[in-house]
């Protein structure tokens, strides 16, 4: 039996009030469980609008958008869609609601009306997954940027979602904060959570199992990371990460065998002089 898709989007379109062009023209996209999709595109290509549509924050004006088999344009399904599909935004300061770490994580489950013990269990789990257990009683304001963004992630995880959408969630972090955030995501993905990651940073695409490029409100390209690096990275004007540049040159010179990953340690290990 074929697995039902986590997201099923067909001909979906959306235009903001008063805007002359559609934010999303017509998007076709189907994502299955456990995938890690890197969603790329220039500023204004409609990525964020798509993210909000997938979270039932914006209903599609044309076409259809289903999340976990639920129609995102049905208001009565919005609550269960948002429980299953959590969204993390760019700026953690815009999504942290409470002054105390654990109370912010609890915000989502509290909205669901769960009993206190159930909320407590979810909060503990989310804090543990994001490595914030030690800081549960800290003021959310006193955290570093990377910790704040992990707190925002913990708040999303406390909903125990099946899918996570990350809208440029790493763009305000420094390399260390980004690395710890990506480690969390990798762990979550291995536990079967589907990840849709909107990003500008090519080195983050390395973790993805699939690449989708948006352009002017449409899906312009959809394929595997390998073929993205081979064919599309330069064509769409994205920066080539240095690791990939290294891999290409090493492959061309016959220094590493085919199938080596663009990761420094792998390259060094595979190197044959």
């Amino acid at each position: 039996m074929e697995q039902s898709p986590v997201f099923f989007i067909q001909g979906a379109g959306y235009s903001y009030k008063g805007a002359s062009v559609s934010a999303i023209e017509s998007v076709n996209l189907s994502v299955t469980s456990g995938e890690w999709v890197a969603l790329l595109g220039t500023n204004g290509s409609g990525k964020s609008t798509l993210a909000k549509m997938m979270n039932a924050l914006l209903p599609p004006m044309r076409g259809v958008c289903f999340a976990m088999g639920m129609d995102t344009s049905a208001p009565e399904l919005a609550a269960s869609i948002r429980q299953n599909v959590a969204l993390v935004f760019q700026n953690p300061d815009d999504q942290i609601v409470a002054s105390i770490v654990e109370e912010d994580v609890a915000f989502g489950p509290e909205n669901l009306g769960l009993p206190s013990e159930a909320i407590r269990a979810r909060v503990e789990r989310a804090l543990q997954l994001t490595g914030l257990s030690e800081m549960r009683r800290r003021g959310s304001y006193s955290l570093s940027g990377g910790q704040k963004q992990r707190l925002a992630l913990a708040g999303a995880l406390a909903m125990e979602p099946k899918a996570l959408i990350l809208d440029e969630s790493t763009s305000m972090l420094d390399p260390e904060g980004r690395a710890s955030f990506l480690n969390c995501l990798r762990e979550l993905n291995t536990r079967g959570i589907t990840i849709i990651q909107i990003t500008h940073r090519m080195e983050e695409v390395v973790h993805a199992s699939r690449v989708v490029i948006m352009e002017a409100g449409k899906v312009a390209w959809d394929g595997s990371p390998d073929s993205f690096w081979e064919e599309k990275c330069a064509e769409f004007g994205f920066d080539t990460p240095q690791e990939l540049e290294l891999l290409r040159s090493l492959r061309a010179g016959g220094f590493v065998p085919a199938g080596t990953k663009p990761v420094v340690n792998d390259l060094l290990e595979a190197l044959c002089l």
Binding site: K52, Q83, A86, L87, F89, G108, P109, N111, G113, P115
Partner: peptide, 23 residues
């Protein structure tokens, strides 16, 4: 505006019955 969107995506409905982590 951003916060309102974030709260909505975390299932906040104004006036709806909420429970507490630390009742």
């Amino acid at each position: 505006d951003c916060l309102a969107t974030a709260m909505e995506s975390r299932c906040y409905v104004p006036g709806a019955q909420r429970t507490k982590l630390n009742p």
